[in-house]
């Protein structure tokens, strides 16, 4: 389902007080997709969003919308709406007037405005809240008003800047699903910024992992999780065991002091690589049956699983297992060929 490109960033450079934030970022965003910019704070994800919204003027580079250059277009002329991090609702207006704000700027048709606002409020589950003052709403309700205020204008693209950051965990999970449902029902492109990798994996069609002003990897949540292109992505998306290794030949890699069969090929003979193994992909077996053996340092109960730190040589493995071993116990570890992910080593 390859949709046409709606937003295209071309070689965007942004400085704040001479400090480079984005250094030549290029990215295409397809129509009707749920795209997430994921990265640690300060990685440039919010800045990228603000470039699309028109709130940050790039030092160089171009922003295309439907193939048209909008780099110098002010925010109020763009077919894009934003849900701001702290909602930025208008405290002097009630819920209805907040949502109607954008419509009123364009039209005087009171009847049409009324029906569109009421319908949008119903869509986000705020029917009956029209006359409420926004300052009397809970965080989740304010969030919904902010989303309705953007969506009621039927933008081609909705930008969301960590909109769920201020909500508690349970509400956040509910809103994640609801946002996804809204995006699919309205067929609007969502560009979502978050530092929460789980949130990114739950909602997105495409995840853009960013660090230090650069795109690290673009792909589906599965791709990003299963085939990280470098150690940063592997480490940022879920927990990982990342080890240095040597690719002896196709399908054979050495790390942690022994050789393993793997499914990767196409590396130069004896190329230095990094190996990623997810904590849940390691099987715990009796010591004598293990490909590797290690001593359990500690065991932490995490709800669905136990997290164990296991010392093997000079490396400490993280293992997620539904059965707990005892601290100090010697255990065996098995890693299947499918569970070994190989990346070229960066230097």
């Amino acid at each position: 389902m390859e949709h046409p490109i709606v937003v295209s960033l071309q070689d965007i450079m942004v400085d704040f007080d001479g400090e480079p934030v984005l250094t030549g970022l290029s990215l295409d965003i397809h129509d009707k997709e749920f795209v997430t910019f994921l990265g640690p704070s300060g990685c440039g994800k919010t800045t990228t969003l603000r470039v699309i919204g028109g709130f940050v003027q790039p030092k160089s580079g171009r922003v295309l919308f439907d193939g048209q250059d909008i780099t110098n277009l002010p925010p109020y002329k763009r077919h894009v709406n934003t849900v701001f991090q702290k909602y930025a609702l208008f405290p002097h207006l009630n819920v209805f007037e907040n949502v109607a704000f954008g419509l009123r700027l364009k039209s005087r048709d009171e009847k049409a405005i009324r029906s569109q606002v009421l319908q949008m409020l119903e869509t986000v589950g705020l029917k009956g809240f029209e006359r409420r003052r926004v300052t009397t709403l809970s965080g989740g309700q304010q969030q919904r008003v902010a989303i309705a205020r953007g969506l009621v204008n039927r933008p081609r693209v909705l930008l969301l800047d960590e909109p769920l950051g201020a909500l508690d965990l349970k509400l956040r999970k509910e809103m994640q699903l609801e946002l996804k449902r809204l995006q699919q029902a309205l067929e609007i492109t969502f560009i979502y910024v978050t530092h929460d990798q789980e949130e990114a994996l739950t909602m997105s069609d495409t995840v853009v992992v960013m660090n230090e002003g650069h795109i690290q990897q673009i792909g589906s949540p599965e791709d990003i999780y299963n085939e990280p292109t470098n150690a940063f992505v592997a480490d940022f998306i879920g927990e990982s065991n990342i080890l240095n290794g040597v690719m002896h030949r196709d399908f054979l890699v050495e790390f942690a002091g022994r050789s393993f069969t793997c499914v990767d090929k196409g590396f130069a003979p004896n190329q230095l690589v990094q190996v990623v193994v997810r904590p849940e992909d390691i099987q715990v077996v009796p010591a004598i049956q293990g490909q590797l053996t290690g001593v359990v340092r500690d065991v932490i109960f995490k709800g669905v699983h136990f997290e164990m730190h296991v010392e093997q040589g000079d490396f400490e493995w993280i293992i997620h297992s539904t059965r707990a071993s005892q601290p100090g116990e010697m255990i065996g570890m098995c890693i299947g060929p499918d569970e070994i992910h190989i990346m070229p080593r960066e230097e």
């Binding site: 002010p74 709406n81 930025a88 208008f90 700027l105 205020r149 204008n153």
Partner: peptide
């Protein structure tokens, strides 16, 4: 007044006068 409140108005289509 938060800068984002002004940005939100711009974002929703308000020009300087509005």
């Amino acid at each position: 007044i938060e800068p984002s409140e002004i940005e939100a108005a711009q974002d929703l289509g308000a020009n300087t006068r509005q």
